Deep mutational scan, measured.
Amino acid sequence: PEDLERKVRELQKNGVSPEQIEKILRRDGVDEREVQELVKKVS
């Protein structure tokens, strides 16, 4: 979803590592495939 992507970009802009971003997304209940997609987009 659009807002998730925005969140991921925000986190990355704040210097959060892709690994941390993955953890955060998983903790928020984002589905694994979605997590991978989002992280791939920003890394």
Rank of each mutant, 00 (worst) to 15 (best):
L11W: 13
V42N: 05
N14C: 12
V8P: 00
K41W: 11
V8S: 01
E37G: 05
Q20P: 00
D31N: 09
V42L: 14
N14M: 14
K41L: 14
E19F: 05
R26C: 04
Q36P: 02
R33A: 13
N14P: 00
R6G: 07
R26Y: 05
L11S: 00
E34F: 14
R6I: 06
V8R: 02
R9K: 07
L38Y: 05
S43F: 15
D28Q: 14
E19L: 07
D28L: 15
V30Q: 03
K41M: 13
Q12A: 15
E32K: 04
D31Q: 06
L4V: 06
N14T: 07
V39M: 15
R6A: 12
E37F: 07
K13E: 08
V35P: 01
E2L: 13
L11A: 01
K23E: 14
K23Y: 10
E5G: 05
Q20C: 13
D31S: 14
K7S: 03
Q12D: 03
D31K: 05
V8K: 01
E2R: 13
K13Q: 10
L11Q: 00
Q36S: 06
N14E: 08
E10A: 11
D3G: 09
E10L: 14
I24F: 04
K41G: 08
N14V: 07
N14S: 11
P1T: 12
P1M: 14
S43E: 09
D3T: 11
E19M: 07
E2M: 13
V39P: 01
Q20E: 14
L11V: 00
Q36H: 12
D28I: 15
Q20S: 06
V16P: 00
V30D: 02
Q36A: 09
I24E: 03
R27S: 10
E34L: 15
V30T: 03
P1V: 12
L11G: 00
Q12I: 15
K40R: 11
V35C: 04
V16E: 04
S17Y: 02
L25K: 00
D31F: 03
E2F: 13
R6E: 09
E5K: 10
V39E: 01
L4W: 11
K13A: 12
E34T: 15
V30M: 09
R6D: 07
K13R: 13
G29T: 01
R9W: 08
S17I: 03
V39C: 11
K13Y: 07
L25Q: 00
V35G: 02
V39Q: 03
I21P: 00
L11T: 00
I21N: 00
E5I: 13
I24Y: 03
V35T: 03
E32D: 06
L25C: 04
I21R: 01
I21M: 04
L4Y: 06
I24Q: 04
Q36R: 12
D31R: 04
L4I: 07
E2Q: 12
I24S: 02
V16M: 14
L38V: 10
K40G: 10
E37I: 09
Q36W: 06
N14H: 11
E2P: 10
E2T: 13
V42Y: 11
V42F: 11
L4T: 04
D3S: 11
D3F: 11
E5P: 04
V8L: 04
R33L: 08
V16H: 13
S43M: 15
P18C: 11
E19Y: 06
E5L: 15
Q20M: 12
E32W: 10
V35F: 06
P1A: 11
V39N: 02
K7F: 13
P1E: 10
G15R: 04
K41H: 08
E19T: 07
V8A: 04
I21W: 03
N14F: 10
D28V: 10
D28W: 15
R9E: 03
R33V: 09
E5T: 07
R27Q: 11
R27Y: 05
V30S: 02
R26K: 07
G29D: 02
Q20T: 08
E32F: 07
E32G: 05
V39S: 02
V35D: 01
R27D: 13
D31A: 09
V42G: 05
R27H: 08
S17G: 06
G29I: 02
L38Q: 03
D28M: 15
V16I: 10
R33M: 09
E22T: 12
R9A: 06
E2Y: 14
R6L: 09
K23Q: 13
V42I: 14
K13N: 08
R9C: 15
R26N: 03
E19H: 08
R33S: 10
G15E: 01
D28P: 03
K7I: 09
E37K: 08
K13H: 07
G15M: 03
R6K: 11
Q36M: 09
R9N: 03
V30P: 01
L25H: 00
P1N: 13
E34R: 15
E37H: 08
G29M: 03
V39G: 02
R26T: 07
N14Q: 13
K40F: 08
D28T: 08
E19N: 06
D31P: 13
K40P: 03
E5R: 11
D28H: 14
V8F: 06
G29C: 08
P18L: 15
L4H: 04
E5V: 12
L25V: 01
P18M: 15
I24W: 05
K13L: 11
R6Q: 11
P18R: 14
E10T: 11
D28E: 13
E10V: 10
P1H: 13
L25P: 00
E32S: 06
P18I: 15
E22D: 02
E2K: 12
G15F: 02
L25S: 00
E32N: 04
K40A: 12
R33P: 04
I21F: 01
V35I: 15
D3Y: 12
G29Q: 02
Q36E: 09
V16C: 12
K41E: 05
S17D: 06
D31T: 10
K7A: 05
K23A: 14
V16S: 06
V39T: 03
Q20K: 05
R26M: 11
V39I: 15
E34A: 13
K41Q: 08
E34C: 14
R33C: 10
Q20Y: 04
Q12E: 05
R26V: 11
Q36G: 05
V35N: 01
V39H: 02
L25A: 00
D31H: 06
R27K: 08
D28C: 15
E19D: 09
V16W: 13
E19C: 12
G29F: 02
R33Y: 07
N14Y: 10
Q12Y: 15
K7V: 08
V8W: 07
G15C: 08
D31M: 05
G29V: 02
L38H: 03
E10D: 09
L4R: 05
V42Q: 04
V8H: 01
V35H: 01
L38D: 01
L38G: 01
R26P: 00
R26F: 05
V8E: 00
E34I: 15
G15W: 02
S17H: 06
L4A: 04
G15H: 04
E34P: 01
Q20V: 09
P1K: 14
Q36D: 05
E2D: 12
E37N: 10
Q20N: 09
P1I: 13
K41D: 04
L4Q: 03
R6F: 10
E2C: 14
V16A: 11
E32T: 04
R27V: 05
V30R: 03
G29N: 03
E5M: 13
E5N: 05
E32L: 07
V42A: 09
L38M: 10
D31L: 06
R33W: 10
K40C: 09
Q20D: 14
N14G: 07
E5D: 05
L4M: 06
D3A: 12
E37W: 08
G29Y: 02
E37Y: 08
S43G: 08
D28Y: 15
S43L: 15
R33F: 08
E32A: 08
L38A: 07
E19I: 07
R6Y: 10
E34Q: 13
Q12S: 13
V35R: 02
N14W: 11
S43N: 10
E37M: 09
G29H: 02
E22W: 12
I24V: 04
D31V: 04
R27F: 06
N14A: 13
R6S: 10
R27W: 04
P18K: 13
K7E: 03
E5S: 07
I24H: 02
D3Q: 09
K40N: 11
Q36C: 10
S43Q: 12
Q36F: 05
D31E: 08
P18G: 05
E22C: 15
E22V: 15
E22Q: 08
L25T: 00
I21S: 00
R9M: 07
L38E: 01
V35E: 01
E34Y: 14
E34N: 07
P1W: 15
E2A: 13
K13C: 08
R33H: 09
L4E: 01
K23H: 09
V42S: 05
L38S: 02
R33Q: 09
K41N: 08
D3E: 12
V42K: 03
I24R: 03
E22I: 15
E2G: 13
K23V: 12
V30H: 12
D31Y: 03
L11I: 00
R26E: 03
V42C: 09
L11E: 00
E10M: 13
